[in-house]
């Protein structure tokens, strides 16, 4: 009985701590998972799972100062497991908006266009590289935190980050080229539409030539 009491007292403490962790970090963890998985609903599920796992594994958190990296580590593993399990690779256009965001149409159009390319490029690079980049540049983890969250040495984390940057650089170039092609294609389609819809006289006028002159 005494053992059980000790256990549950720990449990209550763990719960309180996990709630504090939730309050402090759920937004960034959710955002991170959302970008890792490119699926808002799944990200919410995994964010929830992250905190439940944190509660279960609370004993493994020895140093409170490292709680954030620890949490990211759990979230990252959860995300990787899920990605591997479901083999989710969705290259759907995804602008980053999610449920609950009341962005204006203008915001979506602007931000979506600008970020779309980047988000798509991010989605094409290997998962662990994406993790390293997101953690460092978006979620602003320190070098030590990054190594801890990735479960590798500091040196390995730096190497991973470099590879990620190079992958993203190449992927961005590809995405940029695709956008350019798409845009020119769109322009082509528009041009065809104009030609078909415009009366012959106006078409000539548009082209700058006037046959009757």
């Amino acid at each position: 009985m005494r053992e059980a009491r000790a256990l549950t007292r720990d449990q209550a403490a763990a719960r309180a701590c996990v709630e504090e962790l939730y309050a402090a970090h759920h937004a960034e963890i959710y955002s991170y998972l959302s970008r890792m998985l490119r699926d808002d609903e799944l990200a919410a599920d995994l964010a929830q799972e992250t905190f439940v796992k944190a509660f279960r594994a609370y004993d493994t958190l020895i140093d409170q100062d490292r709680a954030r990296a620890w949490l990211y580590q759990i979230a990252g593993r959860t995300a990787l497991d899920e990605l591997r399990r479901r083999k989710i690779v969705r290259f759907v256009p995804w602008t980053g908006e999610s449920r609950g965001v009341a962005s204006s149409a203008e915001d979506i159009a602007l931000g979506g266009r600008l970020n779309g390319e980047l988000e798509r490029a991010l989605a094409t690079i290997p998962e662990r590289q994406r993790m390293a980049l997101l953690l460092t540049e978006v979620n602003e983890l320190s070098g030590l935190e990054l190594a801890e969250a990735m479960g590798v040495s500091h040196v390995a984390a730096r190497a991973l980050l470099t590879r990620a940057r190079e992958s993203l650089r190449q992927s961005l170039a590809v995405e940029h080229a695709r956008s350019a092609v798409r845009e020119s294609h769109d322009r082509g389609v528009r041009e065809v539409a104009v030609r078909q819809d415009t009366p012959p006289s106006l078409r000539r006028w548009r082209s700058g030539r006037r046959r009757d002159q």
């Binding site: 939730y22 759920h26 937004a27 960034e28 959710y30 955002s31 959302s34 970008r35 808002d40 990200a43 919410a44 964010a47 929830q48 905190f51 439940v52 980053g96 908006e97 999610s98 449920r99 609950g100 965001v101 931000g111 970020n115 980047l118 988000e119 980049l133 997101l134 540049e137 978006v138 602003e140």
Partner: peptide, 17 residues
């Protein structure tokens, strides 16, 4: 990358968690 916005968590995330 640094300019990417935080994606807001759904409002019911706490209730679920």
């Amino acid at each position: 990358l640094a300019a990417l916005p935080t994606i807001p968590a759904p409002r019911d995330l706490w209730a679920r968690t």
